[in-house]
């Protein structure tokens, strides 16, 4: 896949998302001149602790997209077992096949060249609703999620929801 092809594919998705916005998130470019860097605003899924939040995240696509996955990083503070404290998202569909240092991911759960911004965001929204505590990126958060869901975990998530709301209106 040449650079021109990856740029074409991303431009096509951007136009498609502008025409038919998806439920649950909005997407655009960080800088209009760089098709490889996207900014998404994820709406906290209803009926979860994240409801009401507007979380900003950045997607960084490699020139080899769609043969290789993008990286996803939350810019807004968010407390979640599968999101590192620095915002890096750890989900199996963003891992390349064969790139399984822990040996528990099925090939079918990993990156495929048919993934788009939309399918990636659907996975992320489902991850927010349903954390996978087998492979925590934020160990403290995973421990609280398991052991103190209605206490410390809920308090920290609600704090990040409130903060994301304040930042969204700035």
């Amino acid at each position: 896949m040449t650079e021109a092809q990856s740029a074409l594919l991303l431009r096509k998705q951007l136009a498609e998302l502008k025409k038919n916005p998806s439920e649950g998130f909005s997407a655009g470019l960080i800088d209009d001149n760089d098709i490889y860097k996207w900014e998404v605003l994820i709406i906290g899924p209803p009926d979860t602790l994240y409801e009401g939040g507007f979380f900003k995240a950045h997607l960084y696509f490699p020139r080899e997209y769609p043969l290789r996955p993008p990286k996803l990083k939350f810019i807004s503070d968010i407390w979640h077992p599968n999101i590192e404290k620095n915002g890096d998202v750890c989900i199996s569909i963003l891992h390349e096949p064969g790139d399984d240092k822990y040996g528990y991911e099925k090939a079918s759960e990993r990156w495929l060249p048919i993934h788009t911004v939309e399918t990636i965001m659907i996975s992320v929204i489902s991850m927010l609703a349903d954390p996978n505590d087998e492979s925590p990126a934020n160990v403290d958060s995973a421990k609280e999620w398991r052991e103190d869901y209605n206490g410390e975990f809920k308090r920290k998530v609600q704090m990040s929801v409130r903060k994301s709301q304040e930042e969204a209106w700035d």
């Binding site: 390349e96 064969g98 079918s108 060249p113 048919i114």
Partner: peptide, 16 residues
């Protein structure tokens, strides 16, 4: 499109 992918992973992207 598919040959580049198959060199990386010998799976069908649609049905895996």
């Amino acid at each position: 499109c598919i040959d580049d992918w198959l060199m990386r992973s010998f799976t069908c992207p649609s049905c895996m």
